[in-house]
């Protein structure tokens, strides 16, 4: 596995298939990159679990912090590690003790530990290093293009409606008491025939 460059389809299949993501090193401070990524991924429908022993008792977007991966009460698909490269190995070792095993180990932008990656891959896990899942999600969906970022993707298909807030709504304000010209005519015709 080449960890210097990833094929888009590799990243795409991970983001399409994982549902539950434990974020190790998640911060409740709303200017930290981990907070940005946590919130974004939660809004895209992932079941997010914040892992940080320093914040047990608090919650992040309504999700209670847990102290360690072992404290999580449900199977995890992906572990997103928001720690420096030197703190990756213990997290991976802990992850490999879980049952069932997670499917993906993801190390954040700036974080890379090739030995830890090798260990996880030997156990059958997929590994991504030195990437941000928020940026990759935004890139592959082309949502990040709004910031002038090179998504390195092309499409001749109509762009997807990008956020829930932009879903077309029927709850619009109607003028004239909400009656259409057709309903006016129907009402008039009805009066004339009776």
């Amino acid at each position: 596995m080449n960890h210097d460059a990833y094929d888009d389809n590799y990243i795409r299949s991970i983001l399409n298939n994982v549902k539950t993501i434990a974020m190790v090193g998640a911060s409740p401070v709303n200017v930290r990159p981990s907070y940005f990524a946590f919130k974004y991924l939660a809004q895209r429908g992932y079941d997010m679990i914040p892992v940080n022993p320093g914040h047990v008792g608090k919650a992040l977007m309504g999700k209670p912090f847990v102290a360690s991966l072992a404290d999580i009460d449900r199977p995890i698909d992906m572990i997103d590690i928001f720690r420096n490269s030197s703190h990756i190995m213990p997290v991976v070792e802990e992850a490999l003790k879980l049952s069932p095993l997670p499917k993906v180990i993801w190390m954040q932008l700036g974080a890379r530990d090739d030995a830890a990656a090798e260990k996880a891959e030997a156990a059958g896990l997929k590994v991504v290093m030195n990437r941000c899942p928020k940026i990759e999600y935004g890139r592959l969906s082309s949502e990040i293009s709004w910031m002038g970022v090179n998504s390195r993707t092309l499409s001749s298909k109509r762009a997807p409606i990008p956020t829930q807030g932009m879903r077309l709504s029927l709850n619009r304000t109607s003028f004239g008491g909400g009656q259409t010209a057709a309903s006016d005519r129907a009402a008039k015709n009805k009066t004339e025939t009776t």
């Binding site: 709303n30 200017v31 907070y35 940005f36 919130k39 974004y40 935004g138 949502e143 990040i144 293009s145 709004w146 910031m147 002038g148 970022v149 090179n150 998504s151 390195r152 956020t163």
Partner: peptide, 27 residues
């Protein structure tokens, strides 16, 4: 406003037509 989400606020900061131009030249 806090730069947490991708999106449009005001054309002095970004605009969807300009964004297409930006991505094209970046590419």
């Amino acid at each position: 406003f806090g730069l947490q989400a991708f999106g449009n606020i005001y054309t002095r900061i970004g605009n969807p037509t300009n964004a297409v131009l930006e991505e094209r030249v970046a590419a």
